[in-house]
Nucleic acid binder design. Structure first.
Lengths: 96, 96
DNA sequence: CGGCATCCGGGACGATACTG
DNA sequence: CAGTATCGTCCCGGATGCCG
């Protein structure tokens, strides 16, 4: 499956889901909203997503540093898929 | 992400996709249509899917043995998600 | 035909410490 | 604040062989 090559990985769907919900998030914010993720995994998966052109990383030359992440155009095209996954997840939990 | 607990695993989306395409498939048929899967993984992932109530396994007491797999009602509810994943995959390949 | 048992290697993932 | 570096573990997945 092609999709898995991109959204595969334990945390990517969660990261993308929260990014599409909030629009723009900083590194520290992502750490808070994605439940249980470690610094390392967040950093790693973000880098992969950026390499695949799914998200855009923007660095501000400030002290303290600020880095923002948002979905790219290609990332936005994932929205129907992410919505479908999320809504199915809700249904599944409701059934028990 | 809840969905990943169920469709996570390298092969599950592919297996489910082909099952929803063909309706009913035998073990050997799945082995042919799922590209590159090994016996072990196919057997293992099918068992997990059955445990999670996503697919139904039907055994015929014949010689030679015959085992058929199909989506359960719960499995059918995955259809929108699988379709979304598949169509995004197509789009992605078309862009290059 | 449709599996299960076993062994094994690599990579995913986590915890911790350190840095610009 | 936003990462990198390092080390260790776990288990996913492949290869092979056997069984009803």
């Amino acid at each position: 499956m092609t999709s898995l090559a991109v959204i595969g990985g334990k945390w990517k769907p969660a990261i993308l889901y929260f990014l599409q919900q909030h629009g723009v998030l900083r590194f520290g914010e992502l750490r808070k909203v994605v439940p249980g993720i470690t610094q390392k995994m967040l950093s790693q998966q973000l880098k992969e997503l950026e390499t695949d052109g799914i998200i855009v990383r923007r660095v501000y030359a400030e002290i303290p540093p600020r880095v923002e992440y948002r979905l790219s155009t290609l990332g936005e095209s994932l929205r129907p898929m992410l919505d479908a996954m999320a809504s199915w997840g809700m249904d599944y939990l409701r059934r028990g």
